[in-house]
Nucleic acid binder design. Structure first.
Lengths: 228, 228
DNA sequence: CCGATGCTTCGGCCGGCATCGAGGCGAGGG
DNA sequence: CCCTCGCCTCGATGCCGGCCGAAGCATCGG
């Protein structure tokens, strides 16, 4: 066996509550400062610093110094997928929480670089219903007609770097939403069109009036589908 | 946030070297007894018992009592994927090992329920070269001609339970091999045809004379492609 | 019915790691 | 130029959890 202990090393790194909270906070793809991460993890800055150094050394995080701040982000999509997989397995047992301030998060948020929450699931459903994509719990594909439909809203597949269409299990909805390069492109497009906007205080997204119209006109996603 | 600490709990569980060794030993999809897992982890039976209880309680393992033995296995493909993802990230930094007794493992082994090692990668390559499948690092698909080719060797897609074609990053070859239901079916077929056989001592596979002929005739995989 | 085997539970030891207080360094701002 | 703010390093403390020895239950064989 090549890496029996190395595996444990990475997992143990994620296994600390403070570090896990930091990684979860970074799961939406933004880069956060050391101080923000310290607050997110509920520890003092010096403790957070030690954690961040370890995560960066292990290649889970990438850091960028900027002025007197130091911004940290997930090192790669592979790390994001790993955390998602961990969430998928850790959500299963408990079924109780559902805090009130989670409502906004559950409605719409970003997951690394794509849309999640009820909005993400609804978009994936809408695309599947009209036969543009096919999703299962482990894989997905864009149909021929789907390629045309997506081109109509300004989304075309890139050369050949990342996988184009991939499902990602939504931890709040427990159903797959759209990830991969297509998920990222769709998310970017929604921001460009002014359909969604990042909420002031956190990771949740606001859907603008133009967004409501666009979602209904283009995708047939009705507002009541997105209410709690 | 719904599961900040639960995530850490699962990760911390995997983060112990003994438990990680057990999970890695189960990664080939077999069910092992508590004693075998204790030896694999290098701990005494009573210590292993405690670890196994925790892993089972967390839903990572499934246990089946049989006589005076108790067999443990990974609870789901999702768990296997998680461990694979962890391996993918943990192999990256180190690049030194390559022990001599790993040679057999690197040549051919099972990975949860499909083939891995040079054999697994060579089969995936062969299918890709002849245009039967298309694999990237995150997704994959079977082409139209590929469906016919696979049917010719007795492999047809199941109704609609699991994803059919999926890549899985090989930790020894650092390149994708074939997973998903197709990978499992291909693996099963190789066993049925007597092409491969499990080695006595462990997870590695032996390729039989009939296997060498079949691999060359059906897939065009030449023996020298599988040598270290 | 008795011994052997495999697994589990209990109790106590010990090492490792997270945590925080104090102090040092660099970057801005006045 | 000094003061403030953000971040990192060092040292000491304390707790959590893995580990094994011994003993308690099940199953299988004779």
């Amino acid at each position: 066996m090549p890496t029996p202990a190395a595996l444990a090393g990475i997992a143990a790194l994620i296994g600390d509550p403070a570090r896990a909270a930091m990684l979860a906070a970074l799961l939406d793809g933004r880069a956060l400062s050391a101080g923000e991460l310290a607050e997110a993890a509920g520890v003092t800055p010096q403790t957070a610093s030690a954690h961040l150094a370890k995560l960066t050394a292990a290649g889970l995080l990438g850091a960028a110094k900027q002025g007197r701040h130091r911004y940290h982000r997930l090192a790669s999509p592979a790390v994001a997928r790993l955390i998602e997989g961990l969430l998928e397995l850790s959500v299963a047992p408990r079924r109780v929480v559902t805090g009130p301030r989670d409502a906004a998060l559950r409605r719409a948020r970003t997951c690394y670089d794509h849309l999640a929450g009820r909005l993400g699931v609804a978009l994936a459903d809408a695309l599947a219903v009209r036969g543009a994509i096919e999703l299962t719990d482990e894989g997905g594909a864009v149909t021929e007609s789907g390629t045309g439909f997506l081109a109509g809203i300004g989304i075309t597949p890139p050369a050949r770097s990342r996988v184009w269409c991939r499902p990602c299990l939504d931890w709040s909805e427990r159903r797959p939403h759209l990830a991969g390069a297509l998920g990222a492109a769709l998310c970017t497009r929604c921001f460009e069109l002014g359909w969604v906007r990042r909420q002031a205080g956190g990771r949740a997204l606001d859907i603008t009036p133009a967004g409501w119209r666009g979602l209904a006109d283009v995708f047939g996603v009705m507002p009541e589908r997105l209410q709690g």
